Amino acid sequence: MTVLGGLLPDSTAVYVAVVAVTTAMIWAGSGWLERSAEDLSAYYGLPPVVQGSVVVAVGSSFPELASVVITALEDSFGMGVGAIVGSAIFNILVIPAVSGIVTKNPLDVDRTVVYKEAQFYMLAVSTLVITFALAIIYFPVDGGTTLDGSVTRLLATIPLSVYGLYLFIQWQDVGDYDGDDAGSDIDVRREWGWLAVGLVVILVAVELLVGAVNGLNATFDIPEFLAGVTIIAAATSLPDALVSVRAARGGRTVTSLGNVLGSNTFDLLVAIPIGVLIAGSATVSFTVAAPMMGVLTVATVLLFAFLRTDLSLTDPEAYALLVAYLVFVGWVVGETVGTFELLRG
């Protein structure tokens, strides 16, 4: 494992230093991304929920997209899917909890988030499970188990088409939104420039961060599966976390939660299919994918139930989400060391 192409020595101290520096870079990049997205949304008259679930969410999800493309090209797509699902679980359980706790007040939402964003996100989870099932049924892997299948480019169009429906619904909401003229004095070219700079900084920083984390994994002999669905997943979710926390502290709770759900929708319906389209096809093991997607579904239902109660997330509910994530990490550790055997692959 090398850092910066071998320009820096491979040592634990260097890995820790890279983690610290890249975390600061992500903090700065997410700030530029959030501010430019807010200004551009005001300029184009976008509703807050569209700002969070599309504009900011797609930008902050670029690290996950890059990780899936890389794993697909390196024929380790299953690990890429595990990292995406682990990232989605982190987003659903940890980010809303932290956002709610730092605001020191209940994290208020509106019915748009609860009834459109959350439910469409659950549709995204179901769509990906169906896509994997079709891969097992119609494109089994030669020499693999009966639950190994190949996700082809044709199958990848299924989740992509569902995301197209998602964008169409968001576009309809933009047409129905009556915004003010708060963005009339915004320098749109400058804001697009800051948006691009923020994306580049986040991408570079996350790639370096993931490399450093992988180096620490190798140093301390952390199993690949455990690192993928916990450490790597949390690392690639850092931009989402910073953007959502910033928005929540600024009183933009709809944008904060919209970013969480929109990022996960993008990751499941776009990031994974894009990796397949680039690689041509990718092997997925249903023995690992199905239980992980099941955990993601349970996490989504838990968040959905909390948000629907008085359309807010209280501190006790936020801490309950954190406890649920710790239970998930404990289960993954148990699977890794052989205590549990729910993942058969």
Rank of each mutant, 00 (worst) to 15 (best):
G31V: 00
D221P: 03
V210L: 12
A37W: 04
V254E: 09
S76E: 13
I130M: 13
G345Y: 09
V21C: 01
F286L: 13
L46D: 04
L128A: 04
Q51R: 15
G183T: 10
G6W: 07
M25F: 14
T283P: 01
A289M: 12
D10R: 13
N214G: 11
V141H: 02
L238F: 14
S99N: 11
V162I: 14
R246W: 01
G59R: 01
L33E: 05
F304N: 09
G143H: 10
L93P: 04
G80T: 05
V151G: 00
G179K: 08
G334Y: 11
E317W: 05
T112K: 11
P48M: 00
F304C: 00
L160N: 08
I130H: 01
M122Q: 12
Y163V: 04
S237W: 06
S11K: 07
R111S: 15
S87A: 15
V288S: 10
M25T: 01
V129I: 15
S256D: 09
A118E: 06
V254M: 01
E117A: 07
S312R: 14
M25I: 03
D108G: 02
A233D: 09
E34N: 12
R249P: 00
N105Q: 14
S312P: 02
P9D: 07
S36L: 03
T145V: 03
